[in-house]
């Protein structure tokens, strides 16, 4: 790896870290939930490292690949659309081995608190199992459940609940202790 490239990656990681608070649970700008794979691809030459146009950037992962998948009420089954997003995540993680991921499972508010912790854990685990099945090393992945503690949408209607029933793959720069 060249020095400039390393520097660029570090910058990207720092940028991602700087965004930690507002973006922590995926509030973000919501762009490209399941965005087309080609969204940022046309800008050869003019790519700003770390921007959403840079296929190696966390911004690209979050916005173009799509950092999250959504679930039906009280379910942890991956929909065909979710599986498509996760195929993209797996490919990105394979190409960018300098990143680790924490998969955060969430539930909407229609459930008791502790059950929702377990339900969020199931959702995160479903994502992790899918990524591992597509070749991502398990030691690069970790799951955590937030239950219903961190909604991104706050209305009490299905339009919000649907976005809160999610598993978000949060990537960070770093290598696993013993990367395979």
């Amino acid at each position: 790896m060249t020095l400039p490239k390393t520097a660029a990656l570090l910058c990207a990681a720092l940028l991602a870290a700087a965004c930690t608070n507002p973006d922590r649970f995926g509030a973000g700008d919501g762009a490209g939930m399941n965005g087309g794979m080609g969204a940022g691809a046309g800008a050869n030459g003019g790519i700003v490292p770390g921007s959403a146009n840079d296929p190696q950037s966390p911004a690209y992962f979050n916005q173009t690949v799509g950092d999250r998948v959504l679930f039906a009420v009280d379910q942890s089954t991956l929909s065909p659309q979710a599986q498509q997003t996760l195929e993209g995540q797996a490919q990105w993680l394979q190409r960018n081995a300098d990143y680790l991921a924490v998969i955060e499972g969430h539930a909407d508010e229609q459930g008791t608190r502790e059950y929702n912790i377990a339900l969020g854990a199931r959702r995160a685990n479903a994502v992790m199992e899918f990524l591992v099945s597509r070749g991502v090393a398990p030691n690069r992945l970790r799951t955590v459940s937030y239950g219903k503690e961190r909604p991104i949408e706050i209305c009490s209607e299905e339009s919000c609940y649907a976005k809160n029933r999610r598993a978000v793959t949060v990537i960070s720069f770093g290598t696993a202790g013993a990367t395979s």
């Binding site: 942890s76 502790e114 912790i117 377990a118 854990a121 199931r122 685990n125 479903a126 199992e129 459940s145």
Partner: peptide, 9 residues
């Protein structure tokens, strides 16, 4: 207490 491992609690 409850322990979650994988999809199981």
């Amino acid at each position: 207490y409850s322990v979650n491992e994988g999809s199981n609690t």
